Amino acid sequence: MTTSGDTEIAIETGDDVVRVRQAVRTVAGAARLSLVDQTKVVTAASELARNTLVYGGGGVARVKEVTDERGRSGVRIMFRDEGPGIADLDLALTDGWTSGQGLGLGLTGARRLVDAFDLETAVGVGTTVTVTKWRR
């Protein structure tokens, strides 16, 4: 798999969440994702960026265009924070569960909108979520 250059965005305010959305939309367009898939990945990124801000106390997003071994293009976004971590990962990944502070998608909603979803968390250390959406 190959990748183009990363766009790194600090997530410290609500305006930064908007900047993440804009960067994801730009890269998804460059990767020639359909409008529907662009909307899905932007929506997932918005939820995850908001989670990074609200629950992680801020962090960073890295957005990049990727190409798999078959030449298929896509967009990969990594969100990282050094917040409290997720104490009950099973609960956080339960369908329909939301803290009531985000878009109402929760992590499972964001996971359903993308093709690949990876979450690493440790209490007291932080959380990293990486998602990928491929061109169809």
Rank of each mutant, 00 (worst) to 15 (best):
19 R>F: 04
76 R>P: 00
99 S>H: 09
64 K>M: 12
126 G>K: 07
122 A>E: 15
63 V>T: 09
50 R>H: 14
119 L>K: 05
120 E>W: 04
22 Q>A: 12
12 E>C: 00
119 L>A: 09
77 I>M: 09
87 A>Q: 12
20 V>Y: 06
72 R>I: 14
39 T>I: 00
112 R>L: 10
2 T>Q: 14
54 V>S: 06
14 G>A: 10
51 N>H: 13
63 V>Y: 05
115 D>N: 12
94 T>D: 03
32 R>M: 12
17 V>A: 06
112 R>W: 06
24 V>P: 04
53 L>V: 08
75 V>A: 00
49 A>K: 09
113 L>P: 09
20 V>C: 09
63 V>G: 03
63 V>A: 07
16 D>H: 07
5 G>M: 01
61 A>G: 11
100 G>A: 09
2 T>M: 11
100 G>N: 08
73 S>T: 15
118 D>L: 07
12 E>P: 00
44 A>H: 12
52 T>A: 13
72 R>N: 14
67 T>I: 13
54 V>F: 08
82 E>H: 15
112 R>D: 15
102 G>V: 01
107 L>H: 08
128 T>R: 13
112 R>I: 00
130 T>D: 02
80 R>E: 12
31 A>E: 07
117 F>E: 02
74 G>K: 09
90 D>Y: 01
64 K>I: 00
128 T>Y: 01
115 D>V: 04
32 R>K: 14
16 D>N: 10
75 V>W: 00
90 D>A: 14
110 A>C: 10
120 E>R: 11
119 L>D: 08
61 A>V: 09
108 T>V: 14
30 A>N: 08
